[in-house]
C-alpha cells in the first residue's frame, strides 16, 4: 500500500482547512443530488471521494468549482467564502479542476493549452500585439509542467490528436499551470488503459503533498493507494469519512457501496 505515513488524524484535526464545505445542498427538480454535505480538506492532504454511479460526485465538484450553483450552504477556500463567485474568479483564487469528460482546447497544441493557463495567471490578456506563441514567459513554465506530467515530447502536437490518456495528463498539466492550492480531480483515470493509468497514478503520487487534492475515482486500488482520507458519497450524502482503512471496514459503507465492489 501507499508509502505515506498515516497522517489522516492530523488532517482531520487541521486547524485551518484549505477548503471547507458547509451544509452544501443542490437539487435538480425533485432529485436531491447534494444533501447537507459538510467536509473539510486539510492543506496538503489527498482526499478521495468515492461513491456509486450517480451518487453526485461530479455535481459536488461542479458546485465547488463554480460550474454549478448551490441551493444553499457555503464553500470556504482558506476560510474565505467563495460560494457566490463565478468559476473563473475561483480559479484565480487558487482552485483548479479537471473534468470527468476531458476538456481541453483541441485545436491548440499541448504547449498552447498549458501556456494559456499560465497566461490566465499572469494576466495582460488584453495585449493585442506580440506573437503569443513565442513568449518564453508563458512557454517556459508551460514546458516545465509538461515535463512533469511526461508530455514534453508531444508538446507541439494539436491536443485533439493526443491519445485519450495523454489528454487526461494534459488536463492535469493545465490545472497545475494555474498554480492552484486546491486541485479538484474528477476521475483522472476514467477511460485510460493500464499503462496510461499507471502513469497518471505515478503522477498523482508526485503531486501529492504539493497541493490539497480532492480526488474522485472509481479505481479502488488507486484510491486506497493514494488517499490520506476517503469520504463516501451515496445519494448525495456523506455516509462515512476517515482513513482508508477505517472507511474500508465501515459496515455502512460495505453495505451501501463496497459490497458490490468485492473489497
Amino acid at each position: 500500500m501507499a508509502g505515506t505515513p498515516a497522517k489522516a488524524e492530523d488532517f482531520a484535526k487541521a486547524a485551518k482547512p484549505a477548503l471547507a464545505l458547509v451544509d452544501l445542498n443542490k437539487a435538480y427538480g425533485a432529485l436531491k443530488v447534494t444533501d447537507q454535505v459538510s467536509l473539510e480538506f486539510a492543506p496538503g492532504e489527498l482526499h478521495a471521494i468515492i461513491g456509486p454511479n450517480g451518487a453526485g460526485k461530479t455535481t459536488l465538484i461542479h458546485q465547488i468549482s463554480g460550474l454549478a450553483g448551490s441551493d444553499s450552504g457555503h464553500i470556504l477556500l482558506d476560510g474565505q467564502d467563495i460560494t457566490g463567485l463565478p468559476m473563473a474568479a475561483r480559479v484565480r483564487k487558487g482552485l483548479a479542476r479537471s473534468f470527468q469528460i476531458t476538456s481541453i482546447i483541441p485545436g491548440f497544441t499541448g504547449l498552447e493549452n498549458v501556456a494559456l493557463a499560465v497566461q490566465a495567471r499572469l494576466g495582460s490578456s488584453f495585449r493585442l500585439f506580440g506573437a503569443v506563441s513565442r513568449e518564453e514567459r508563458l512557454n517556459a513554465p508551460a514546458r516545465a509542467i509538461l515535463e512533469t506530467v511526461g508530455l514534453l515530447g508531444r508538446a507541439d502536437l494539436p491536443a485533439g490528436l493526443l491519445s485519450h490518456g495523454e489528454k487526461r495528463q494534459l488536463e492535469l498539466a493545465i490545472a497545475m499551470a494555474t498554480e492552484p492550492r486546491v486541485l479538484l480531480l474528477d476521475e483522472p483515470l476514467a477511460g485510460t488503459g493500464p499503462e496510461e493509468s499507471a502513469a497518471v497514478i505515478a503522477l498523482l503520487r508526485k503531486l501529492k503533498g504539493r497541493y490539497t487534492i480532492v480526488l474522485i475515482e472509481h479505481d479502488m486500488d488507486a484510491v486506497f493507494a493514494l488517499a490520506d482520507r476517503v469520504s463516501v458519497l451515496v445519494y448525495g450524502r456523506i455516509i462515512a469519512s476517515g482513513t482508508p482503512d477505517a472507511v474500508r471496514h465501515d459496515p455502512a459503507v460495505r453495505e451501501a457501496y463496497l459490497g458490490e465492489e468485492g473489497l
Binding site: 468549482s65 473563473a88 474568479a89
Partner: peptide, 27 residues
C-alpha cells in the same frame, strides 16, 4: 497581429471551449 497575440489566444480558446477558458480563470 491581434489573432496571434495574447488577446487573440483568449478569443480563439473561447471559440473552441468556453468552459475550459473559465476553468483556467478567464471570463
Amino acid at each position: 497581429a491581434i489573432v496571434a497575440s495574447r488577446f487573440g489566444r483568449v478569443i480563439r480558446g473561447a471559440k473552441e471551449n468556453p468552459v475550459r477558458m473559465e476553468a483556467v480563470g478567464f471570463s
